[in-house]
Amino acid sequence: MRIAEHWINGAVLIGIAALPLWALFIDEPFTITLVTRAVILALAAVGLNIVLGFGGLVSFGHAVFFGLGGYAMGILAYHAQTYTVLDLGFFTTEGTKSMPIIWLVAMGISAIAAFFIGLLCLRTSGVYFIMITLAFGQMFYYFAISWAQYGGEDGLSIYVRNGFPGLNTLVPIQFFGICFALLCLVLILKARLQRAPFGLALNALRQSEARVATMGLNPMRIKLLAFVLSGAITGLAGALFADLNRFVSPAMFSWQFSGELIVLIIIGGVGRLMGPVIGACVFVALEHFLGGLTDFWHVYLGLILLGIVLFGRGGLLGLLTGKEGAHV
């Protein structure tokens, strides 16, 4: 079975948009929340896929950016809901309940963190890169646990979902619409980036760093910018995830979450535009249906993963399109 990739991509996006509408029609709000969750995880993984799929850098620490996005939302909303002042020394604020501002802060902080983490980690490669990104993830995780002011181990609850001008974000379908629109926007940007000179250079870097340097291009700067873009997108997803649950906790920083992101990219197809999206949908569906039947659903996830790694490195997308070589 070989289907052109853009048909599959279109069908998946239409499916993701249609399912919540149908759920709305039959009055099943939980399904809407489930799909929203898949969309947000997809967004986080699309971010990771910039460095993992195109740059060939297996970051085992992307939960850092997911968590930073989540805590950016949590902290800003916490100060707004308790009418307390956040004093950073050089800057004070009373927090905010406005999503667009929270998104910008989440992306900005994630980007800054990605810059410094990248500066240190990107000098290594292979297993060392995996290990050092993992170590950064654990560092943030333990910091969050001990950060008593913002709930420590218990996390922070936000009572009312943050607002978006002109919409009622408490209505599940409207919040879904926001998340889905952001995912589509990021996918469009990513599709452009991939074929622009920057994408060409990043793609070449995965294949031969010596070649890229010999062409007068600075490998470190290209990797660093990719890492920053990647972190910012995953940070945005973190802010949305916190808003979906109205709750942030150190679990957002956990290495398990970093691993899940990698797993769902592998399931969908490494280095493919829609790989993470398909992977996220499959992941959330399995978690929901198998998770309802057995506590050991991760075993089945593991089996699926094993099958994909053994029988086709192109993931589900590779299987459907009959193409193993991604990156096109």
Binding site: A196, F198, A201, R211, M215, G216, L217, N218, I222
Partner: peptide
């Protein structure tokens, strides 16, 4: 890729 290097065009997105 060579042309991108020659023209310093890597920062186009």
């Amino acid at each position: 890729l060579g042309a991108v290097g020659a023209q310093g065009a890597a920062w186009r997105f």
